[in-house]
Design a protein around this nucleic acid. Structure first.
Lengths: 143, 143
DNA sequence: GTGTTTACTTGTGATATGCAAGTGATGAAG
DNA sequence: CTTCATCACTTGCATATCACAAGTAAACAC
């Protein structure tokens, strides 16, 4: 296990954010949880981007240490764990949405849904509320 | 020079954003340009976060290849180059602001200005306009 | 010319990543 | 209650990336 991430410790909010989730994979995991309803190790592993299993384990641990996600046994299947966003993690949604907007604007091959992109501009608050509620609804089902 | 960054090429907007500026240093450089008026190699090197000179050169080249920044000779001092954000680069401002908001909310040691944080909520559009205008004004002075 | 500033490049050891294979706990089937 | 499959990891190793120190080259100041 790779202990201790590089900490810049400058007090700068951008540096803080990068230390917390600014690596190559954390936001991919967050995206899967926030936008695609994924919540198990196996589901994260199956992502198109092909994250390595040791890296995934390391990132999940780090995100948990930082308080962005929580880990619990699946009551329906006790050999499975459920990973869920905490309120601190859910609050990354605005950042993720702005990244979607930016990429949709500049990537000629984007697969971003035009409906979502339009709604980011026209109904940002409503969209954020929907995404967060949807993410939390799946948590209730798990109980 | 490190050629060819890992390209995930999935069409996912989050993956695209991460491939473009999602490394440990690019957003630090963008922050310096956007929020602190920096525009030369030496100014970036002097940042609190202590970026290594070879990494800085590599990231500036990458950001230029991606069309986020432009490089030009300083007409006032021809041994100096000026790095400036393109419109595509300036359009990262909303993402940067959301990261500031998030970090200010969750970093107990944040040095984020309370005035800015308040304004992110209350006058987001005006703040964005100010940041971009300020960034472009320094470019006019350079001519 | 000589020295200084500015923007890099190069070399080398440390660190992180990616891939393949292995482990241990839970649960399902007979 | 034994065997097999699933799920979430861990371990080992080759490769890639990074950090640090030192060196190079062009512009300018004198």
């Amino acid at each position: 296990m790779t202990r201790s991430k590089s900490k810049r410790q400058t007090g700068c909010p951008i540096a803080f954010a990068l230390d917390t989730f600014g690596d190559k994979w954390s936001l991919i995991i967050i995206r899967d949880m926030l936008m695609r309803g994924k919540e198990t190790y196996g589901e994260f592993l199956a992502a198109d981007e092909k994250i390595a299993t040791n890296i995934l384990a390391d990132r999940l641990q780090h995100l948990q240490d930082e308080g962005l996600i929580e880990k619990s046994r699946d009551p329906q299947n006790r050999r499975r764990f459920l990973y869920r966003l905490t309120p601190k993690g859910l609050d990354l949604a605005p950042i993720v949405l702005e990244m979607v907007r930016w990429s949709a604007a500049y990537d000629p091959n984007t697969k971003a849904s035009q409906a979502v992109v339009t709604r980011i501009q026209s109904d940002r608050e409503g969209l954020l509320k929907d995404i967060i509620q949807k993410s939390q609804r799946s948590q209730d089902e798990g109980r």
